[in-house]
Nucleic acid binder design. Structure first.
Length: 261
DNA sequence: ATGTCACAATGGTTGTGA
């Protein structure tokens, strides 16, 4: 089973790229972020035509997350339970496979910049609420994957210039600590577990300043797996070639393969 | 070359967020 996470930076602006990539990669489940459109405006029919079921949690202009799945999506949750959030940043569902249920979430964690604005406390509050929710999920001892744009750079090797990013909301010590707390609940961060992270595993390059050709990237899109899901993890992949396409997103798809046999 | 992009509300450009 192939599961992908992709911040598309507007699903309408990225529709052609998204369709091309879906046909090429043939993922079973996709977590999308930054839809930048309301549910009614989501390009459902084009994506359904490729064989996907769709659940969206959209928002005008900003944010918005969705799940695409070849399996039926059930027990949909929109928003982190118990967390009052004005932004559409979290959607969760359960799929039933021949080898049992799998819970999947698509999340778009707040950016948090600038750090001296209310945006950074909001980011940390979001991370705390998400950690609390993940802790509850862990108690159920199920297979689950929390996929998305975490807007968190886990370690120095995940950023081209650690010193320059020291004060940034994506890399500040508090952000990294919160990300570690999350992982330390017993989750497995897929890419870091199966590969050596570094300049080859970035997932985002700014549109500005020639960041992509210079490989001035960061690794902020992650899959966190419960122990039962991590037991099935056999492969990870980052589809960097999509960054070379016309009208690219600033993020590229990050994929994991679970052996559900 | 400050090598960006998407969106919204304009009013034909500017602000916002990333």
């Amino acid at each position: 089973m192939l599961i992908a996470s992709w911040n598309v930076n507007s699903v309408k602006a990225r529709l052609q790229n998204l369709l091309t990539w879906l046909e090429e990669a043939k993922p079973d489940i996709v977590a999308l972020q930054e839809l930048k459109c309301v549910d009614e405006a989501f390009p459902r029919s084009e994506i359904e035509a490729l064989g996907y079921n769709i659940e969206t949690f959209g928002q005008k202009t900003y944010n918005g997350v969705a799940l695409l799945s070849r399996y039926r999506l059930e027990d949909i949750i929109r928003g982190i339970p118990g967390f009052d959030d004005e932004h559409s940043r979290y959607i969760e569902a359960v799929v039933s496979t021949s080898s049992g249920a799998l819970r999947v979430a698509s999340l778009y964690l707040p950016n948090g910049n600038p750090v001296d604005s209310p945006k950074y406390p909001y980011k940390l509050a979001w991370m705390a609420a998400f950690e609390k929710h993940a802790e509850i999920l862990m108690q159920n001892e199920e297979a689950f994957v929390l996929a998305g744009d975490y807007n968190a750079i886990p370690s120095p090797q995940d950023v081209h210039a650690p010193d320059a990013w020291e004060g940034d909301a994506l890399y500040r010590p508090e952000t990294r600590e919160a990300f570690r707390r999350l992982v330390n609940l017993g989750l497995t961060e897929a890419v870091g577990t199966l590969t050596t992270t570094g300049p080859d595993t970035y997932t985002f390059w700014d549109y500005q300043g020639g960041a992509w050709p210079k490989n001035k990237g960061i690794r902020i899109d992650h899959h966190l797996l419960s122990p039962l899901a991590a037991d099935k993890l056999v492969n990870v992949r980052i589809d960097k070639h999509t960054r070379d396409w016309e009208k690219p997103s600033d993020h590229v798809p990050v994929l994991i393969e679970l052996d559900m046999a």
